[in-house]
Amino acid sequence: MRVGVVTFPGSLDDVDAQRACRLAGHDVLALWHGEPSLAGVDAVVLPGGFSYGDYLRCGAISRFSPVMGAVVDAARDGMPVLGICNGFQILCESHLLPGALVRNHHQRFVCRDQRLRIDNATTPWTASYEQGQEVVVPLKNGEGSYVADAATLDELEAEGRVVARYVGADPNGSLRAIAGVTNAAGNVVGLMPHPEHAVEDLCGPGTDGLGFFTSLTALAAAL
């Protein structure tokens, strides 16, 4: 597949996301936030970082970037979209995903290898995993606590839209230990940890994160 990785002012994991996509066998196109076109890509990744310096709220300014109009339209038409960390925040600000990411409950930045459980292995971004599989990928955030009202949380649980949960001690105060969610259609996924930093044995805790990118390969084969 041809995957577009968006770069915003302040993105710092865009190159890592590009590399992860290439290792998974995809063609990669770098997309600039100021361009209103997706240039014919088949899927989009919004990478981690500190877009616009996290002014106002994380992702609040990027949500209005020209490229996001195209991303929102494409996502609503079924295009697979993955938001990682800051990308997750942008997806919430764009109302493609419910809830919000707020300051960590302990008021500190967290950076560590984190164990996750994959609770939904049916999305285009998680199909390479088994339901309930545990993986280890890096986590690094200061505003990574996922929050939503009780009705929204209950809806996510009932519809199987919690994609991943933290295993063990909750690292940032996310309600119900939620590390990632998907939209009702299942094509848009937001994940706070960083699978793109766990795609090679040489760097990071292993290759557990590669499945988030190879899952698209299985999708392409089925088309």
Rank of each mutant, 00 (worst) to 15 (best):
Phe8Ile: 01
Pro9Leu: 13
Pro9Trp: 14
Ser11Thr: 15
Leu12Asp: 15
Asp13Arg: 13
Asp16Val: 08
Ala17Cys: 15
Arg19Ser: 00
Ala20Glu: 09
Cys21Pro: 12
Leu23Lys: 05
Ala24Trp: 03
Gly25His: 10
His26Glu: 06
His26Asp: 05
His26Gln: 10
Val28Phe: 07
Val28Pro: 06
Leu29Asp: 12
Leu29Ser: 12
Ala30Cys: 02
Leu31Tyr: 04
Leu31Pro: 05
Trp32Gly: 02
Gly34Tyr: 12
Gly34Val: 09
Pro36Val: 10
Gly40Ile: 11
Val41Ala: 09
Ala43His: 14
Ala43Asp: 10
Ala43Ser: 13
Val44Lys: 00
Val44Tyr: 01
Gly48Cys: 08
Gly49Asn: 10
Ser51Cys: 13
Tyr52Gly: 00
Gly53Cys: 07
Gly53Gln: 10
Asp54Met: 09
Leu56Trp: 11
Leu56Phe: 11
Leu56Pro: 00
Gly59Leu: 04
Ile61Ala: 03
Ile61Ser: 03
Ile61His: 02
Arg63His: 09
Arg63Ser: 03
Phe64Trp: 14
Phe64Pro: 00
Pro66Ala: 04
Pro66Glu: 08
Val67His: 03
Val67Gln: 06
Met68Tyr: 07
Gly69Arg: 13
Ala70Arg: 12
Val72Gly: 07
Val72Leu: 09
Val72Gln: 10
Ala74Gly: 09
Arg76Ile: 05
Arg76His: 15
Asp77Tyr: 01
Asp77Pro: 00
Asp77Gln: 15
Met79Val: 03
Pro80Tyr: 15
Pro80Lys: 09
Leu82Asp: 04
Ile84Trp: 11
Ile84Phe: 09
Gly87Ile: 12
Gly87Phe: 09
Phe88Ser: 03
Phe88Asn: 01
Phe88Glu: 01
Gln89Gly: 14
Ile90Cys: 03
Leu91Asp: 10
Leu91Asn: 13
Leu91Lys: 10
Leu91Gln: 12
Glu93Gly: 14
His95Ala: 14
His95Pro: 00
Leu97Thr: 02
Leu97Lys: 01
Gly99Asn: 08
Gly99Arg: 04
Val102Gln: 05
Gln107Trp: 10
Phe109Ala: 00
Cys111Pro: 00
Arg112Ile: 13
Asp113Lys: 13
Gln114His: 02
Gln114Leu: 04
Gln114Trp: 02
Arg115Cys: 05
Arg115Gln: 15
Leu116Arg: 11
Leu116Trp: 09
Leu116Glu: 08
Arg117Leu: 00
Ile118Val: 14
Ile118Ala: 05
Asp119Lys: 03
Asp119Gln: 07
Asp119Glu: 14
Ala121Glu: 14
Ala121Leu: 12
Thr122Arg: 14
Thr123Ala: 00
Thr123Tyr: 08
Thr123Pro: 07
Thr123Leu: 09
Pro124Ile: 11
Thr126Gln: 06
Ala127Ser: 15
Ala127Glu: 09
Tyr129Leu: 05
Tyr129Ala: 02
Tyr129Arg: 01
Glu130Tyr: 11
Glu130Cys: 13
Gln131Arg: 11
Gln131Asp: 07
Glu134Met: 04
